[in-house]
Design a protein around this nucleic acid. Structure first.
Lengths: 131, 131
DNA sequence: CCGGATCCCCTGAGATACTG
DNA sequence: CAGTATCTCAGGGGATCCGG
């Protein structure tokens, strides 16, 4: 990579942005985080098990891990009640809600373009079929 | 999980939306897909190796896999030139660009809230320290 | 009886070497 | 240069056990 700047700009990507992607988007881009955000945004405050059910197909281990990460990032608030049947519930913080809002555009995109994606997948499958 | 609907509403989440999340967002939520989208959006048409360089730290295997998935979903167009030094380049389709635009809100959120996240992480670290 | 921690297994990501 | 094959190993899923 000594003389690669003939056709490329000197600073191809904003390094700060790349750092941002790695440290922020990386953890958040996890699909379980996105699903948890979505569910918590729609349902509000939820208990651990219930949240897991609504997220569909997540294991407790991953649920715990995802929620811990989200808590560490300040996206959810974790409340533990010291009662005999243990009760822990999770709720989005303001930061979490704002991230959910930011993802809104993506949900809308998905809804608007599901047909296009389906078509693209079918076309790709057909193409690779005979290739 | 046979009798889980005692405390739950009949249809807790729009099943169509959940299906959407699983089939569409799942593949797209992959961090490499997001980075590839970002890079291709900024740089336009790129060759395989160059794209890998700009994405920073991705292996060829994952790059190939990510690009194949994106091609299957109609997000990128793959062009193969039958020349002696093989040349393949990738460019966002209209669908891919629209997805990139949808993610714009997320990038903006990340930039706007990086400080808040940093603070939350520090606070969480401090809290878990003595716990 | 719920939240979650731990153990084990297996998929899948990363690095390397090789081919067209 | 673009992509595949192979190996290795971290990380995710499932079951089970523990603390409150």
């Amino acid at each position: 990579m000594k003389h690669n700047d003939r056709t490329a700009p000197a600073v191809p990507l904003d390094p700060a942005l790349e750092q941002l992607v790695r440290e922020l988007i990386g953890p958040v881009a996890d699909k379980w985080t996105m699903v948890a955000l979505e569910v918590l945004e729609q349902e509000g405050r939820l208990r651990f098990t219930r949240l897991g059910e609504l997220m569909g197909g997540i294991s407790q281990k991953m649920l715990t891990k995802t929620l811990r990460q989200m808590e560490a990032d300040g996206l959810v608030e974790r409340t533990v009640y010291a009662v005999v049947p243990p009760k822990v519930d999770y709720e989005l913080t303001a930061l979490g809600r704002s991230l959910g809002a930011a993802f809104c555009g993506v949900w809308e995109w998905a809804e608007a373009n599901r047909a296009a994606i389906g078509a693209a997948r079918a076309a790709f499958a057909a193409r690779t079929q005979r290739a």
